[in-house]
């Protein structure tokens, strides 16, 4: 099972979730425009529209170039991970899902933290794009849309991180 280093998780958010590792920024680095926001939702399909609106507002409020296209990509990537949590980590029964969004002027990140069942990456196989399928596109889309996708399980929590490189 891949273990990610949460070097990108902002220190306050990491402290909040007990996931603190190594802060990405030192105090000597220039203070470019950084923003973060968090949303707590019940991981159900009915919550996804609210999550999508939250993600879009966050991206469009930032100073990223081509924000509309970036919002489209980021919303779908975060959405697919959140649906994956709802369907597989909580098996449709709902449960706590915390979504932390961060923008530092170079990378847009989302951290999704849940307390459901762990994810086994070995169950994933390559997606055959020569034929249409009813299942298997969710994480394929996340990987296709994002520049970085990480998964970690610790302390009975799953943390997905999805990031897209962008410029201000």
């Amino acid at each position: 099972m891949p273990v990610m280093t949460l070097r990108s998780l902002a220190a306050p958010a990491a402290r909040l979730f007990g996931l603190e590792r190594r802060p990405r920024w030192s105090e000597k680095e220039p203070d470019i425009r950084r923003t973060s926001a968090a949303l707590w939702i019940d991981a159900t399909h009915a919550s996804m529209a609210r999550l999508g609106a939250f993600v879009r507002r966050f991206v469009l409020a930032g100073n990223a170039a081509d924000a509309e296209a970036l919002a489209d990509r980021f919303e779908l990537a975060v959405h697919e991970l959140a649906v994956n949590v709802a369907d597989h980590a909580y098996r449709g029964a709902g449960g706590s899902l915390t979504v932390v969004l961060e923008w530092d002027g170079t990378e847009l990140r989302a951290h999704l933290v849940d307390e459901g069942r762990g994810f086994d990456p070995d169950v994933l196989g390559p997606v055959d794009l020569t034929q249409p399928h009813e299942h298997g596109y969710g994480l394929y889309l996340v990987n296709a849309l994002a520049d970085r996708v990480d998964y970690r399980r610790a302390n009975n929590r799953n943390t997905w991180t999805v990031a897209i490189f962008a410029s201000a």
Binding site: G52, V83, P132, H133, E134, H135
Partner: peptide, 15 residues
């Protein structure tokens, strides 16, 4: 204005 993998699945079933 928004479609996800579940939307794709509905299209595939119909197809």
């Amino acid at each position: 204005d928004f479609m996800d993998s579940a939307g794709l699945a509905a299209l595939v079933r119909a197809l």
